[in-house]
Design a protein around this nucleic acid. Structure first.
Length: 874
RNA sequence: GGGCGAUUAGCUCAGCUGGUUUAGAGCGUCUGCCUUACAAGCAGAGGGUCUGCGGUUCGAAUCCGUAAUCGCCCACCA
């Protein structure tokens, strides 16, 4: 380490200590007698790269884990990645396409080989990047949602739920992603407001020369129309009862149905019904036994069943059909219209509601204990407002569509028999046994069984994450599971509360009988300076690795944390990281100062003795404050507390008080106390800024190989001497008063001054005042010196005799200003006290405070009056 | 359409069960200083009728109502 550099250089330091921590396996945890503290990482996508959100989220987790470790707990942070079925498969498909390979020309096995190659190559890059941030994960436990243990757990759970009757297969209207070519769960659909059109189309009434007008946003779906619906109470349309209308262009006659689902005042009051491509229309179709014409292929082009525009994309059809309708004079009008359109969370494709055969989980019974856990506070949410969101979702929960028409993921363990029917089993061998039993056909072989081609939703493996990491599904009695589970805290972003958090809670109770974690800390969303969400398309997200490089990991961590109270979005700006970097520098330079001191065996100066005593109290108070704040997950406030202790109290006051004169040595008592304090400050800072604290801690004293600040304990708070702390605040004010006088009168610090004080002055810290103010003599003197520059601290007036330098008029003006303030203040207090109802109703303590305020203000005014009269004014 | 949350200094936010807060912090701004740890620094200063209105109370930034603005979540009006 280069002790002469005035700037902290994070680069070499970070690499060195991370390697040291790894080499000595300091992140590794095994069950022992200590209290466990466990966090499981929200697994990032296996092919993802580090972004601002990850940095925030993982910094918080690291702070919690490192702090727990330093409080003597057996801390474990388990890392891992998620196979992210849809997005990974999409990436692999795109990569193959760029090589001229079409996914569908490959067998499932061939495709999976490519996918695994891709995963091996790019997978886990993000985990390497987390190391640069300082994440103290137990990398030996790195897991993957598709590794063997996790995969087996998933399959076991599927079979278990199936056996319990909680998983079923059926034809339902699902959200279809025509780009990823798979069904999605409701949660994977993002509704976005879009500027679109409302098309008013003319439907001819069969056998009459009359038309009705139907309003739609999707004219292309008329190909699938099988009815037109009006409200039975709508008098405009009673004449339509029992009639049929002709679908424009298509020429098909469809019945008029009457249902009060239709809003009379929307559009024209006529609704076209396309049961195959709209959830509500499906419901109507079901109710009125309408035929359902599926006019789209899986990729969103028109199918043979559409009869026209076959093979054309749905959006091209929209344009074309409108041209054709215009030409046939079947368009009444076109209005601008804003509506919400569902998009795929992963591919952003516009969702097509589609009827298909899928697998579902019945959620109602799973939700019950999970809801109760949060309602009863067994699991607490930070901030608590997310309980509302959670409650609402849980009480309106719908069945979960878990099948995905993908290859990358856990293949559904359902096996179809040659003569129909299927069995669900953990392995093909077990399936065969069940199949033989079910069919009564003993000659069946493995080749006769055909496994369901679909994969499971990614979240069907993620919801088991906390349990499956400790193998709690397959071996619920294993030692690790019993020790580490339930985990302590979960740190995640609120946008996956339904995807993940809620489902983990359900899985926790269902598969382990216990909650998966005690607290859920919801982070904010990182936004840019003007409040926009950071996104690739906007290009407003700084490159995470560049930031780490520019400001150092500690600087970035601190910058993010300073602005990140729980659940509060943070507006990112580089100035935050600059502040973090500057703080690193401050710490660095304090260390340089301390290490530069010569130590001699001499008596401890009075000022140093006082400083040591005072800072000890201040340290105690801050430890207590941090304990309290961290207990409430007010992490940024805890950081601010230690930041201010270090910068304002330790650097600006303590070090200045004990600092020996230039070239002079320091007494060993003060020196050792200072080293002790510095050590303690480093410990308190370490969870937030792991690298610089390790570097300095290692250099602060001789350390054995393998020793680390990571395991240096943060002691429990002792009771602080509040009296001493508050007395010292007055001392600061006195010193500040002296500094102000010096500044106003342009008297340099090196010129010693005399200070007069009234007898109410507390002499306990005189040595400090003398040193910090460069005061040669502090004289208790009641009478006023008109040639002295005065200031008041508390009730006591202080003055510095300056002979000719004092301008009496300035002094008088200053006193008048103070008098004005205190007169007003006193009037306010007196008004309160003269209110009988206040005195009668307010608690005694509150009244006493007001009385003291009054007495203090009066004393102060008396002091001011005396000073004024001494100056010959009033 | 329902719900939730926010609105406090130029910016980002504290202020928890109303009373030692006629309101605090960090950053930024302004003024002096390259003082032998640190100019990414030091010493100071200025800056707010707590979104508006009404109410409860002896007392309101804090509780209640209401309006406005913003944000988020949920929902099957084409």
């Amino acid at each position: 380490m280069n002790e002469t550099a005035t700037k902290y250089d994070p680069h070499a330091v970070e690499e060195k200590w991370y390697a040291y921590w790894m080499e000595h396996r300091l992140f590794h945890s095994e069950p022992d007698n200590r209290e466990p503290y466990t966090i499981v990482i929200p697994p990032p996508n296996v092919t993802g790269v580090l972004h601002m959100g990850h940095m925030l989220n993982n910094t918080i987790q690291d702070i919690l884990v490192r702090r727990a470790r330093m409080m003597g707990k057996n801390a474990l942070w388990v890392p891992g990645t998620d196979h992210a079925a849809i997005s990974t498969e999409a990436k692999v498909v795109a990569k193959l396409a760029s090589e001229g390979i079409n996914k569908h020309d490959l067998s499932r096995e061939e495709f999976l080989r490519h996918a695994w190659d891709w995963t091996d190559k790019y997978g886990g890059i993000i985990l390497k990047q987390l190391r640069k941030l300082g994440a103290s994960c137990d990398w030996e436990r790195t897991a993957f949602t598709m590794d063997e243990q996790r995969s087996k757990s998933v399959i076991r759970v599927f079979c278990d739920l199936y056996d319990k009757g909680l998983i079923y297969r059926g034809v339902r209207m699902v959200n279809w992603d025509p780009r990823a070519l798979t069904a999605l769960s409701d949660e994977e659909v993002i509704y976005k407001e879009e500027q679109s059109k409302l098309y008013h189309l003319r439907y001819k009434v069969e056998g009459e020369d009359r038309y009705i007008i139907v309003a739609t946003t999707r004219p292309e779906t008329i190909l699938g129309d099988t009815a037109v619906c009006v409200n039975p109470n709508d008098e405009r349309y009673t004449w339509l009862k029992g009639k049929k209308v002709i679908v424009p262009l298509v020429g098909r006659a469809v019945p008029i149905i009457m249902d009060d689902y239709v809003e009379m005042d929307f559009g024209t009051g006529c609704l076209k019904v396309t049961p195959a491509h709209d959830v509500n229309d499906y419901m109507l179709g079901d109710k009125y036994n309408l035929p359902s014409i599926d006019i789209f292929n899986d990729n969103g082009t028109v199918s043979e069943a559409g009869g026209m525009y076959v093979g054309m994309d749905r959006f091209d059809v929209r344009r074309r059909i409108m041209e054709d309708l215009q030409a046939a004079d079947l368009v009444e009008k076109v209005e601008d219209y804003v509506n919400k359109v569902g998009h795929s969370e992963r591919t952003d494709a516009v969702i097509e509601p589609k009827l298909s055969m899928q697998w579902f989980v019945k959620m109602e019974s799973l939700a019950k204990p999970a809801l109760a856990a949060v309602e009863d506070g067994d699991i607490s949410f930070v901030p608590a407002k997310f309980r509302n969101t959670y409650r609402h979702w849980m009480t309106n929960i719908k069945d979960w569509c878990i099948s995905r028409q993908l290859w990358w993921g856990h293949q559904i363990p359902a096996y179809y028999l040659p003569d129909g029917g299927y069995v669900v089993a953990e392995t093909p061998e077990e399936a065969l046994v069940k199949a033989i039993e079910k069919s009564g056909n003993a000659s069946l072989t493995l080749d006769d069984l055909k496994q369901d081609a679909d994969c499971l939703d990614t979240w069907f493996s993620s919801w088991l994450w906390p349990i499956s990491l400790f193998n709690g599904i397959l071996e619920p009695e294993n030692e690790e599971f019993k020790y580490y589970y339930p985990t302590a805290d979960l740190v995640t972003a609120p946008d996956i509360i339904f995807f993940w958090v809620a489902r983990m809670i359900m899985a926790g109770y269902e598969f382990s009988g216990k909650k998966p974690f005690g607290n859920v800390y919801f982070t904010g969303i990182v936004r840019d300076k003007i409040g926009r969400k950071m996104s690739k398309t906007l290009g407003n997200s700084p490159d995470a690795l560049e930031l780490l490089d520019k400001f150092g990991a500690d600087g970035v961590r601190m910058g993010l944390m300073l602005a990140a109270p729980a659940g509060h979005d943070i507006m990112y700006d580089d100035s935050l990281c600059e502040q973090g970097r500057n703080f690193c520098n401050k710490i660095w330079n304090s260390f340089r100062l301390i290490k530069g001191w010569q130590v001699a065996d001499e008596a401890q100066p009075e000022a140093s003795k006082l400083a040591v005593k005072w800072f000890g109290e201040k340290l105690n108070a801050t430890i207590a404050e941090m304990d309290d704040l961290m207990g409430k997950f007010r992490i940024s406030e805890a950081l601010m507390a230690i930041y201010r202790l270090f910068w304002d109290e330790f650097s600006s006051w303590y070090l200045e008080m004990v600092k020996p004169a230039f070239g002079q040595p320091m007494d060993s008592a003060t020196y050792n106390a200072t080293l002790g304090y510095f050590d303690m400050l480093l410990r308190l800072l370490h969870p937030f800024m792991p690298f610089i604290t390790e570097e300095l801690w290692q250099n602060l004293a001789e350390r054995k190989d393998g020793e680390s600040i990571m395991y240096a304990q943060i002691p429990a708070a002792a009771k602080a001497d509040e009296k001493m702390i508050s007395d010292f605040e007055s001392v600061k004010e006195i010193v500040a008063g002296i500094r102000t006088v010096r500044k106003q009168k342009q008297i340099p610090q090196k010129e010693a001054l005399e200070l007069n004080a009234q007898k109410s002055h507390n002499p306990a810290f005189d040595a400090v005042i003398a040193k910090m103010g460069n005061i040669s003599a502090l004289i208790i003197k009641e009478e006023k010196d008109p040639t002295a520059a005065a200031f008041i601290v508390g009730k006591t007036e202080y003055s510095i005799p300056l002979a000719d330098k004092v301008n009496p008029e300035e002094e008088i003006a200053k006193l008048h200003k103070e008098r004005e303030y205190y007169t007003k203040f006193l009037a306010g207090v007196e008004k309160k006290l003269s209110n009988e109802r206040f005195v009668a109703n307010a608690p005694e303590a509150v009244v006493a405070i007001e009385r003291k305020k009054k007495a203090d203000a009066e004393a102060k005014l008396a002091t001011i009056a005396a000073s004024l009269s001494a100056l010959g004014a009033n």
